[in-house]
């Protein structure tokens, strides 16, 4: 299995680090503190890259694998950052029967990332979701708060091109 280290460079600040260390210090000796520390770390950074998980492991005095095992067990944790533009493709029933699976595959191909991934330049991230309440426009995807409906795979390059900067 290929390494799951995010290809997006880590841009954590010293303020974020100080905040995380403070949280670790306050919870270090509390039994069962790993999950709360991880949740608050994700609140600070938006995701749990190896740099952050290593800080947690070293701060709590536990193996990195222990942190990683928990991070990959629970769906609430993510190893990848959200891109500047987060694309969410609806795979709910209505969208799916209208071909949103093909849209999703096209996006994966175009962006070169998998579900939950983020392009190395930090620009686009890709996720699936279940129903955004616009079934009449199926198949639907959202880029940040913008909704795109009645999609075909051919339309994808043009839409992505709008997000140049």
């Amino acid at each position: 299995m290929a390494s799951t280290i995010s290809s997006v460079p880590f841009t954590g600040t010293s303020e974020q680090e100080a905040k995380l260390k403070e949280i670790i210090a306050s919870l270090k000796d509390v039994p069962g503190s790993l999950m709360p520390v991880m949740q608050q770390a994700q609140d600070i950074y938006g995701y749990l890259p190896i740099e952050v998980q290593t800080m947690i492991a070293e701060g709590l005095g536990i193996p990195l694998e222990k942190v990683y095992g928990v991070a990959t067990f629970y769906a609430q944790f993510t190893l990848q950052p959200k891109g500047k533009y987060n694309i969410s493709v609806c795979l709910g029933t209505a969208c799916y029967v209208k071909g949103s699976g093909d849209i999703y595959e096209e996006l994966k191909k175009r962006l070169g990332i998998e579900e939950g991934g983020c392009t190395p330049d930090g620009k686009f991230s890709l996720n699936s979701c279940r129903c955004v309440g616009a079934c009449g426009l199926a198949p639907v995807m959202m880029i940040n708060d913008e909704v795109y409906g009645r999609l075909t795979p051919d339309a994808i390059p043009g839409i992505l091109a709008k997000y140049k900067d």
Partner: peptide, 22 residues
């Protein structure tokens, strides 16, 4: 007392390996 291997992921994808699949 080392702990460099453990169960990663969940359900059918569960497997024993190291952090970040290194």
């Amino acid at each position: 007392g080392i702990g460099v291997i453990g169960p990663n992921n969940r359900g059918f994808d569960t497997h024993i390996s190291s952090a970040f699949e290194l």
